[in-house]
Amino acid sequence: MKSHIFGIGVVLMLSFSLAGMTFTAAGVLRRFELKFGPLLSFAVGTSTLVALVAVLAWSVPPRG
């Protein structure tokens, strides 16, 4: 597989994951009727995505 095709796939996967986590956080925060709900849901989704990528990167064994 060519590296740019793989990179595009990874970027799409991460963007869809961010959209799903933001949508889920927005649904939960909608119950509390917060003033900054959409911004807070994006922050929650982004921080969750960063944590997920960090855990996945940590779990990959080193090469060699």
Rank of each mutant, 00 (worst) to 15 (best):
A57E: 10
V53M: 08
A57D: 11
V44L: 15
M13T: 15
G45A: 04
A43R: 04
F23G: 15
M21Q: 12
F36R: 14
E33N: 11
T22G: 04
L40N: 01
S41L: 01
V50K: 08
V44E: 01
L56I: 10
F36W: 13
F42N: 07
R63K: 14
G20N: 11
K2Q: 10
A54D: 04
F6L: 12
W58I: 02
V60L: 09
K2H: 13
A57V: 05
T22A: 11
V53S: 04
T46I: 07
R31T: 08
F6I: 13
W58G: 00
S3Q: 12
L39A: 13
F32I: 03
G7T: 07
A43V: 13
P38N: 07
V60G: 02
G20V: 07
L56G: 07
F42I: 14
T48F: 06
F32E: 06
V28N: 01
V60P: 02
A25N: 05
E33F: 07
P38D: 04
R30E: 10
S47F: 14
R30V: 02
M13I: 14
G27D: 03
K2N: 14
L52V: 10
L39H: 04
G64Q: 06
V44G: 04
A51F: 08
H4N: 11
H4R: 12
P61M: 03
S41G: 00
A25I: 04
L40T: 11
T46K: 03
S47L: 15
L18M: 15
A26K: 10
A51Q: 05
W58T: 01
P61S: 08
G45L: 06
L56D: 08
R63A: 09
V44N: 04
V10E: 08
S15N: 07
V60C: 05
R63P: 05
L49Y: 00
R31V: 06
S17A: 15
F32Q: 09
L56E: 11
V11A: 15
L56Y: 07
S17H: 01
A51D: 02
V28A: 13
L49I: 02
F32P: 02
R31D: 09
W58Y: 09
L52G: 06
L29D: 07
F23R: 14
L56N: 09
A19P: 03
P38F: 02
F23K: 09
F23H: 14
G45I: 04
M21D: 04
V50S: 10
P61I: 00
I5K: 11
P62I: 03
T24D: 13
G9S: 14
S59Q: 12
R31I: 10
L39C: 05
G27F: 05
M13L: 15
F42V: 15
G20D: 07
A26F: 14
T48V: 07
V60E: 11
R30W: 02
M1L: 13
T24S: 13
I5L: 10
G37A: 10
V55H: 04
P61V: 01
A51M: 09
G27Y: 01
G45M: 05
L18D: 03
L49H: 06
G45H: 05
V28W: 12
A54Y: 11
G37F: 04
T46V: 09
G27I: 02
T22C: 03
A26Q: 13
L39Q: 10
W58C: 00
V44W: 01
F32R: 09
S41W: 07
G20A: 15
G37V: 01
K2T: 12
A57N: 13
S17I: 13
L34E: 05
G64Y: 10
S15Y: 03
V44C: 12
